[in-house]
Write a protein that binds this DNA or RNA. Structure first.
Lengths: 135, 135
DNA sequence: CTTGACCTTCCCACGATGGGAAGCCCTATC
DNA sequence: GATAGGGCTTCCCATCGTGGGAAGGTCAAG
């Protein structure tokens, strides 16, 4: 299987497959005599694994750890769980940050009449002239 | 006021102040005869404005738009509100994406006993061997 | 006059991805 | 057998916002 087929079959672009190889996330692919990369079904499964892990927001470094655990038949599920929980914590933190931004902005936008007059609580908040209520 | 003082007084690092100048987000700062950038109190206020906008998650391009509206005394608050609502929509979308990730992962992690045995629903999901419940 | 803190510019790095150019390879069609 | 086209290769550049650090100039205090 050439890289194009591996890409369309896994949902990982050819560009990214080469990149993952270059950073050592996946092992060096085999090559035809003419230099084309070739992929086996098991490598395709690995690419799909990566794709799914990325879809869950794991950074590539964590994906590497997950791959290692996946390959290790004597892994401890505790290690996988620990990795997942770390990522859950990161997501939770980021979600909270963004929700705080959104809540503040929603309040400000709601207070902004949004007509052709220049007065605007959003700008006033950014300006820092008013003590921000910030709920 | 030198750049260091402007930085500590605004919460924007000197590095970033130079960068913002280089990309045209802020006007070219004045210089002393020896080449040091100088900042007036009103420029300090502008930097603080930027800092606050960044804290609310506005991308730099939107910060530029906000600055323009801020300077424009005949602005329409509707334009400011529109900008803010666009950003709120972006935040809402991203929050939803991350919550979906977190929810899926939480379910998987909860189903993982997390001991010294290798069996792990998290890896099984990534592997794609099981039909993902994904709630 | 030296020392140390500040400033300058310039380049590099991150994380993950896409775009595109230049050139080789493979297959189908004429 | 030649040619066209699509796929493959490597290489460089861009994104977005930020930090690190080197090499060198400047300023103020001792």
């Amino acid at each position: 299987m050439n890289i194009g087929e591996a890409a369309s079959g896994s949902g990982v672009s050819a560009k990214m497959i080469r990149y993952y190889e270059s950073i050592g996330l996946i092992p060096t692919a085999g090559r035809t005599r003419s230099g084309y990369r070739t992929y086996s079904p098991s490598e395709l499964r690995m690419l799909r694994f990566i794709r799914r892990a990325r879809d869950l927001g794991f950074p590539l470094e964590a994906v590497g750890d997950l791959l290692a655990l996946w390959r290790d038949r004597s892994r401890h599920s505790a290690d996988v769980k620990h990795l997942a929980e770390g990522h859950i914590a990161t997501l939770t933190r980021r979600i909270a940050e963004m929700q705080a931004m959104r809540d503040t902005l929603s309040d400000l936008a709601e207070a902004c009449c949004g007509d052709d007059r220049p007065d605007c609580p959003i700008l006033a908040d950014l300006e820092g002239t008013v003590t921000p209520p910030r709920r």
